[in-house]
């Protein structure tokens, strides 16, 4: 699965003292983080804690003001000054968004083939072959000729997953992938993500699905106020949280 020539024990994401400000608001504070290839990391925290901002820094959708971020050997510079490395990183890092962000003017299949054709320069036949295989894998193959608006939310999010996977990413980012879904559709998206995790994909997931986090995560990170407060295995963080903030947060979200 891993085609990279970098040694597999070398971290695929390396963040060192990363700081980000929105005006005077210090949204990420001295973030140090390493992600190992194959690792599934779930990031939890209250809304506004900086967890989405953190993963959006990894593929440069958010700029950071100082510190150091390296993704698969490509260095991102502060304040967005790294356009060439950024492009390389984005072709290797897939992302699934809360609002799906499918392209409404393209069919489901064309949503999936666009980037492989335009970025990877695959011919249409080869790209379609890959798209069909991925759509079948996420259970959407019979909807390939429809437009996104004709699909349910759960189906749209599975298409978004297939679209990201078509670039054969080495790392997948998930930004609250089930938060915009009706409850009955959450399971189908989590199933597709679980399958991906089992295949060894490196994943960074921001989610409020604690049951899923406990089951799938290799590591859980709790963020509060732009800082990593606590991290560890799901058992460590969920069953025996060390910090009062983590305990408070978990008692609130696990109650219902």
């Amino acid at each position: 699965m891993n085609h990279s020539n970098s040694a597999s024990n070398k971290p695929i994401v390396h963040m060192d003292k990363v700081n980000k400000y929105f005006g005077s608001l210090h949204v990420l504070q001295d973030i140090d983080l390493e992600i190992t290839p194959g690792e599934v990391v779930v990031i939890i925290g209250a809304s506004g804690s900086g967890k989405s901002t953190l993963i959006r820094c990894v593929n440069g959708l958010e700029e950071f003001q100082n510190g150091h971020i390296e993704v698969d050997g490509n260095e991102l510079l502060p304040n967005g000054k790294s356009s060439k490395a950024l492009q390389t990183i984005r072709t290797e890092v897939g992302m699934v968004f809360q609002q799906f962000n499918l392209f409404p003017h393209l069919s489901v299949r064309d949503n999936v083939t666009l980037a492989p054709i335009k970025v990877r320069r695959l011919d249409r036949g080869r790209a379609t072959e890959i798209a069909n295989k991925l759509l079948e894998r996420v259970g959407i193959s019979d909807q390939a000729d429809k437009y996104p608006s004709q699909l349910s939310g759960g189906q749209q999010q599975r298409v978004a997953l297939a679209r990201a996977l078509a670039m054969e990413p080495r790392l997948m980012l998930f930004d609250e992938p089930t938060s915009a879904l009706d409850p009955e559709m959450i399971g189908e998206v989590l199933d597709a993500m679980r399958e991906l995790a089992n295949e060894g994909m490196t994943m960074m997931i921001v989610t409020h699905e604690m049951g899923f986090a406990r089951e799938v995560a290799d590591r859980v990170i709790y963020i509060h106020g732009g800082q990593i407060v606590e991290q560890g295995s799901p058992r460590e963080v969920f069953d025996n949280p060390q910090h009062e903030r983590t305990q408070n947060f978990l008692s609130r979200v696990l109650k219902h």
Partner: peptide, 24 residues
């Protein structure tokens, strides 16, 4: 989010504009 989705797939800003934003 349309632009972000395009950029996250590795499209350049020009490609994201041409293939995603402009047609819509």
């Amino acid at each position: 989010g349309q632009r972000e989705a395009g950029l996250s797939l590795g499209l350049s800003r020009t490609q994201a504009f041409r293939y995603i934003i402009w047609p819509q």
